[in-house]
Write a protein that binds this DNA or RNA. Structure first.
Lengths: 108, 108
DNA sequence: AGTATTGCTACAAAATATGTAGTGGTATGG
DNA sequence: CCATACCACTACATATTTTGTAGCAATACT
């Protein structure tokens, strides 16, 4: 399980379980936030930065590279966009949106 | 959206969107791995540590506190266990497991 | 009483993220 | 053509998070 993450292998990948590699990738700061936003359509670097509450350009750049290397996003003429694979992944995590609302009520 | 995360407010919570708070929580190191493991049944601190590839006790302890504060896990006589809420959440992320296998083939 | 295991805490070092400034590239206007 | 203005990044110092190792108090087992 050698995912093409720049630098060292993915955290959690030693077990060889793909799910662990995926959870590691998604468990990095803003990774899921980026995917969530891109489902609304392609976006520019700047707009992603704003959407992710002013994530630093350094981190955004790194995250985008990783997601690109894992074929979840790609650059298009309109900016960054989800790949077919990325869309599939989004559709799997989409249900979290409505669940989160119910969950959040426990803290009001 | 003031989730009871020890210390500062959840990253991503400023928008007031519960999904962002949830993605932040789940986007911390090993958070989803812990949930994934606990679905197989209650577990002790030590076994969780082994399962999470020797996550440092400091981080494991912090993460367990956060997940407890957000009512996703709880301490039982048998150790740490998912709450009703935590189980619901797991069932939402469970499909990632089979998807990850297909996705991983792109890197072989 | 002695040894083992467990659930943690302490703390220094390493890795990661942030915040701000700046660079080079392309578009727009005068 | 030159200035101004964005945009997509890179550089780099600082802050925060995670790791790794050691150790301690509590319970269990011999």
């Amino acid at each position: 399980m050698a995912l093409p993450i720049p630098g060292k292998p993915v955290r959690g990948s030693k077990t060889g379980q793909p799910i662990m590699a995926l959870l590691d990738l998604l468990g990095r700061s803003w990774a899921m936030g980026i995917i969530w936003h891109l489902y609304t359509g392609p976006s520019t670097f700047r707009r992603l930065q704003e959407y992710c509450e002013s994530i630093s350009p350094t981190t955004l750049n790194k995250r985008l590279k990783e997601l690109k290397d894992c074929h979840l996003i790609e650059r298009t003429l309109e900016g960054y966009a989800l790949t077919k694979s990325g869309e599939e992944l989004f559709e799997l995590i989409e249900p979290l949106g409505s669940w989160a609302k119910i969950w959040a009520k426990n803290f009001k």
